[in-house]
Nucleic acid binder design. Sequence first.
DNA 1: CCTTCGGTGAAACAAAGTTGCATAGAACGC
DNA 2: GCGTTCTATGCAACTTTGTTTCACCGAAGG
Lengths: 172, 172
Amino acid sequence: MQLCFTEGFPLPQPSKSTVLDTFDRKILDILQRDNTTPQRTIGEAVNLSAPAVQRRIKRMTTDGVIQANVAVIDPDALGQAITIFVEVEVISETAAQIEQAKREFSAVPEVQQCYYVTGAADFILIIVVPSMADYEALTRRLFFGNNNVKRFRTFVAMDRVKVGLSVPTSTA
Amino acid sequence: MQLCFTEGFPLPQPSKSTVLDTFDRKILDILQRDNTTPQRTIGEAVNLSAPAVQRRIKRMTTDGVIQANVAVIDPDALGQAITIFVEVEVISETAAQIEQAKREFSAVPEVQQCYYVTGAADFILIIVVPSMADYEALTRRLFFGNNNVKRFRTFVAMDRVKVGLSVPTSTA
DNA sequence: CCTTCGGTGAAACAAAGTTGCATAGAACGC
DNA sequence: GCGTTCTATGCAACTTTGTTTCACCGAAGG
């Protein structure tokens, strides 16, 4: 285990232009919900033998279609109860400075998700902290201490209505 | 398996006030990164036997600390390439109407995450769609078709810089 | 028509998860 | 202080699951 995760998923190389057939999609659909499902059970669900399922999973894993297998933890249980959204607007949008910002935001463990977006803001962060005091300290370090941050808007989550990373698998 | 997932995690009953010791936190830290890690390996990492690890995982699962075990899929591989943020502002904030909105948003498969927040907006949605045309259709159905939606602002993600649900496990 | 290649299922095998049991330590009451 | 109880542990057997091997089938192409 010498992989260097900055925390969060490394978002590896873009998946090779793999063609996913109906079997693959059905398998992914199951794994997205519960990746502890036995391959035999998956096999029955999709009408395939266990080894066939296993080969497909292995292929999709090496191809980067399956990026990670993780447990989802209740933040409350860890005392990390507050989820916060931040829209960040930067002053200078040169490529170098954007990359710099990406690296800075990603490096913070409390930053669960970070997106570079178009629109009224440049970055959107999803942050999880134990208390508002911690968030306050974080803003001081991350935003006020960064002279390329023009403005940021904070939204505090009162309810995590739906949380997931599941992607619709339908061919639609 | 007769659980009824609306898609996304059901966010079960609030975890009982379980006390998590250092062992638990270390185990969670590992499972958050890779829940395919053998229990024996985890045991070595935390200085515990495999059955001990297994019992703790089982307890945390039934207690709701571990909410789900899932595979993380690359949206690109499924042709669901566009990630979009939406800030939704509603007109009337009665309890009933908020609950109604929560249900409506949660029911949509393309809505990966939905939060009820304080601040300039009421809801924040994270949506994944194959194309802008699909998003346009979705807005028509979800926002313009809902007469309690006052306003919504869209942000399109150009880069998923960091994506994860990992919660810091440090006792801090 | 034959060959090749990708994919499959059945069976054997290896590795992981799971259970039962005896034990060690902490908290408590006597 | 002594014994009881409760909790959690490790070890070892056991079960389930993942993995590999191999022969076979069907489609694509010469």
